[in-house]
Structure formats: structure tokens, C-alpha cells
Amino acid sequence: MSNQLAFYFDASACSGCKACMAACKDRSDLPVGVNWRKVFQYGGGGWVPDPLDPRYTLPNNIYSYAVSVACMHCENPLCADVCPASAITKQADGTVLINTDLCIGCRYCEWACPYGAPQFNEGTGQMTKCDFCVDLQAQGLNPACVDACVMRALEVGDLDELRQEHGSIDAIEPLPLANITKPALVVKPHRHSSPSGQGAGRINDPFAEEV
């Protein structure tokens, strides 16, 4: 046991259906523009001229896969380090939470986090982010996103145990390099995914924030 709660995400199983996103949005009643969990569709490849007849083209290494991303409840949470108001703190179970009694809404954590986890709520003037459904977990239930996943691509558990079970990969494209904040994440890669920083593809649905 590492006393660090963590998410496991199976990129090889995820279908990109975004049920996790919808369940999260519903459970926490998030306004438009605030999505504590986001699903990014990452892909690459292209078309090349057909060597037999250059008037036609052939698909060349075209691939696409989805990555579901929420707060990584990092072991080294840069958001908490930089927060001037001491509003972001790491709890005993490893979860990283925002205290709305202290948050001044300066959005500095937004600049620090490479996962886009802290998000500004225009209505309250404060920062919000994934709270790991601590209320549900206290009742012995799973976070909403985990139970909503039809592909069983999400799990929650102790970081060490998840690593023993699934390996220790924590950074595939389009996730940032893990050395910045040490995310509490275990990923099972997609067969087409490259390690972070080595991908040649791009995010193909960059408008997910408008949901």
C-alpha cells in the first residue's frame, strides 16, 4: 500500500464513448465549459499516393485512440505548490482537493497543471477539479466515471497495487511527461500509442471544452 489513491486507465479497451465524462458531469453537476473528466481522441497517420496508380491514394498508418483524463491526484502536485491561498492540499489518502473557503480564484493552478485538471467556474469565481468522488468512495462506492465505463477501462485503487497488477506506464500520448508532477496513474497503452513526447499524432477533437 502506498497511501496513494490512483486511477487505472485501459487505453486498449476505451472506445471513446465519453460515458465517463457524462457521468462525472452529472454527478458533480458541472456547468458548461467545466469538465473534470475529459476524453481526448488522439490520432495520426495519413494518405499516400498508390504506387500502382498515383491518381488514387492509400491509407498509411492511420490510427486513432481515446484517452480519458481527470485530475491525476499527483504525488508531486504542482497546483498545490503554486496555490498562493493554500487552498489546494494533498490528503492522507493521496487525493488532491480544493478548499473553496480559501480559493481566491486567481487561476494560477490552471497554468501549473499539465493535465488541465483545475478549471475555473465562472459562476462561483473559484477553481474546481475532480475530487475523486470522495463522498462515494467513503460509502464504499466507485467514482462515477469508473462505474459508468461500459468498456471497464477505468478502475480506482491503491497506486502500488494497480502498478503490480497492470504495470507502471503513466504517460502515453497525448498525456504530458510524468516527471513533471508524478501522476497517480496507471495506463495500459493502446497498440498504436507512443510514450509521451514521442508521438507524431495530434488531438483530433480539441473542442471538448465547449461541452
Binding site: A80, D81, V82, C83, P84, A85, S86, A87, D101, L102, C103, I104, G105, C106, R107, Y108, F120, T124, G125, Q126, M127
Partner: peptide, 18 residues
């Protein structure tokens, strides 16, 4: 965004440059 909490902005000088 939340001026009422502004006084708390000086509390994290141990790690926050802000």
C-alpha cells in the same frame, strides 16, 4: 474570481512564488 478570500493569498509563501 473570489475577492472575499483575498487575505488567504499570502498563506502559502513556503512554496508559492505568488
Amino acid at each position: 474570481g473570489s475577492v472575499a478570500n483575498a487575505p488567504s493569498a499570502v498563506t502559502n509563501f513556503a512554496t508559492s512564488w505568488l
